[in-house]
Simulated scan of single mutants.
Amino acid sequence: MIRPALLLALLASPAMADDVTVFAAASLKNALDEVAAGFMRQTGHDVTISYAGSNILAKQIIEGAPADLFISASKEWMDQVEEAGMVERRADLLGNRLVLVAHGAAQPVQISPDTDLAGLLDGGKLAMALVDSVPAGQYGKAALEHLGLWDDVRADVAQSDNVRAALALVATGEAPLGIVYATDAAAEDGVTIVGEFPSDSHPPITYPAALLTGASDDADRAFYDALSDSAAMAVFERHGFTVPN
């Protein structure tokens, strides 16, 4: 016979599972949702993930938003969080590639200083994340400047709050072309990758992950460790991310 006190403890135990709150770059959504689902099945801990541009998330963390982990799409924004004294542990988790996507089916493009990007737009807009603050936009602008193409298209750029919003503009046909990560393009059937930017045309695309000083329990540390285990890496690679050696 189960004693009443023991029965109450058993009934209460699922609600006592430790929660993990993660702030993560929007481009991680599909892969990170899958990693988190596996972690929750295995451990019983709940994982709540807020996705947005890394710039927005970093500012929210610095202003005191209750996050246990932060995964940024750029070292710059992670550096600012660390400089604010809010990083307990940190490691470079993933990499990515920068691509040009088109709405629907389209012919491939060789991206070089000779590319007539303005001509390819044909009066339409080039969708990008915010070029001065969101990592995908910053990488994209850097690549266009390196190739000498920025001045040709800067007046035609339609900027969005994050890379997934830029991807949506192309997928719905509101913009004929966009610059996004390869992983975003792979997650959207409404676009076609027409070209890849040379890796030396922009800074390396790096996703640092951090356990924040506000993390309070073993569940937070367990999820941070799980992000770099072999099971998680297999998920990230399947979604098109590159992983450190």
Results as ranks from 00 to 15, higher is better:
Leu32Gln: 07
Val101Lys: 05
Asn30Asp: 11
Phe70Ala: 04
Ala52Lys: 07
Gly38Lys: 14
Ala136Asn: 09
Met78Gln: 10
Arg164Glu: 12
Asp18Arg: 08
Gly95Thr: 15
Asp114Phe: 10
Asp152Met: 13
Met128Cys: 15
Ala24Ile: 08
Lys59Asp: 12
Gly95Ala: 10
Gly104Ile: 14
Glu174Arg: 13
Gln110Glu: 12
Met233Tyr: 06
Val35Ala: 04
Leu212Glu: 12
Tyr51Cys: 03
Arg238Gln: 11
Val243Asn: 06
Ser201Pro: 12
Gln42Met: 03
Leu227Cys: 03
Met40Thr: 14
Tyr181Pro: 00
Gly44Ser: 10
Phe241Ala: 03
Val194Thr: 09
Gly104Phe: 13
Glu76Phe: 13
Ala186His: 03
Ala209Tyr: 03
Gln42Leu: 05
Asp152Gln: 15
Gly137Ala: 14
Thr206Asp: 04
Gly148Arg: 02
Val134Gln: 15
Leu10Met: 10
Lys29Asp: 13
Ser112Tyr: 12
Arg97Lys: 15
Val235Met: 02
Asp116Gln: 05
Val81Tyr: 01
Asp200Ile: 02
Phe241Thr: 03
Met40Trp: 02
Gly148Gln: 07
Lys75Ile: 02
Ala143Pro: 00
Pro198Gln: 06
Ala142Thr: 08
Leu227His: 05
Ala143Asn: 06
Asp68Cys: 09
Ile205Gly: 01
Tyr181Leu: 13
Asn96Gly: 11
